[in-house]
């Protein structure tokens, strides 16, 4: 007895758990233990991706990890991923030199709701490595700059040497149509920028809370404090979006690892509105 007819399957569907083999085109060190890999595909067209989505990257013989896209969604053939070496697989990935093969499958997950950004102020708040998944969103917002109100990027890191994408940040800083503030938790001379937590920047950011779309990416604690600060500033929880992180093994919603409350984050997320996350984020060890 076959399964019910409600589960049709295309015979030509590619095996979803099978990676495509690509090569490292070049890699650049962005910060201590953080590298950006630009991948080269063997002429094989890469599927389009949305800002905030992720790929599963395989270091052959070591394993597989989820890594957000950090490149431009308008140029999906240029696969860009920013990786921090924190475990066996990510250590292996950042050690790959130009020409070395790796596996890629995806894109997976739901990205930033940029379709909701039209006509609104957009506030991006990034913490640490969280700037990488937000960068595609910023590319897309700036590419259609006239469609949005004020765009603000608030970025916090641990120390000045942890700041990612410095050259781009410098260029963005000179744009008249983007407000950029960078702050660090700890600094020594000669740092002349902000010192303090990223939430402290919110009070000085210019945005209309009633018509603001807020995109948050960073450590969970930082996102929780930032989301609460934004709510206190009058932004609706429905308009605040967080990119959540949990263990992910399959990317297609069947391995069960990435559950957060009722969400399968690889499928229902990783980006979810704070309105849905507020309660579960308060539960310990959920």
């Amino acid at each position: 007895m076959a399964p019910a007819a409600e589960f049709p399957v295309s015979q030509t569907a590619p095996e979803p758990l099978l990676p495509r083999v690509v090569c490292v085109h070049r890699r650049r060190r962005d910060a201590p233990r953080v590298w950006t890999l630009e991948l080269q595909t063997a002429g094989e067209p890469q599927p389009p991706f949305a800002a905030g989505q992720f790929n599963m990257l395989t270091a052959f013989g070591v394993g597989e990890v989820p890594i957000s896209f950090s490149g431009d969604p308008a140029a999906p053939q240029r696969l860009v991923h920013t990786v921090r070496a924190v475990g066996a697989v990510s250590e292996a990935l950042v050690r790959l030199e130009a020409g070395a093969p790796l596996g890629v499958r995806g894109p997976y997950g739901k990205g930033w709701p940029l379709e909701a950004a039209d006509g609104r102020d957009v506030l991006l708040v990034a913490g640490g490595l969280g700037l990488a998944p937000l960068r595609p969103a910023l590319y897309q917002l700036l590419a259609q700059r006239e469609r949005h109100g004020r765009i603000t990027l608030l970025y916090g890191t641990r120390s000045p040497r942890d700041i990612l994408f410095r050259r781009e940040l410098a260029a963005w800083g000179t744009r008249g149509d983007l407000a950029l503030e960078v702050t660090v938790d700890h600094a020594t001379t000669p740092w002349q920028g902000h010192v303090g937590v990223v939430t402290a920047l919110i009070a000085h950011a210019r945005f209309d809370p009633q018509r603001t779309l807020a995109l948050l990416c960073g450590p969970e604690i930082m996102m929780r404090f930032t989301a609460e600060a934004l709510c206190a500033a009058g932004v609706a929880p429905e308009a605040i979006h967080l990119s959540m992180e949990r263990s992910m093994k399959c990317g297609v919603g069947t391995c069960g690892h990435c559950q957060f409350g009722g969400f399968l984050l690889c499928r229902d997320g990783p980006v979810l509105p704070y309105a849905l996350l507020r309660a579960p984020l308060r539960v310990r060890e959920l």
């Binding site: 938790d185 937590v197 604690i221």
Partner: peptide, 14 residues
């Protein structure tokens, strides 16, 4: 804010 700084949230936890 100081407590948040103390948490060192951007660290890798190791």
């Amino acid at each position: 804010a100081t407590r948040l700084q103390l948490l060192d949230v951007y660290g890798t936890g190791r």
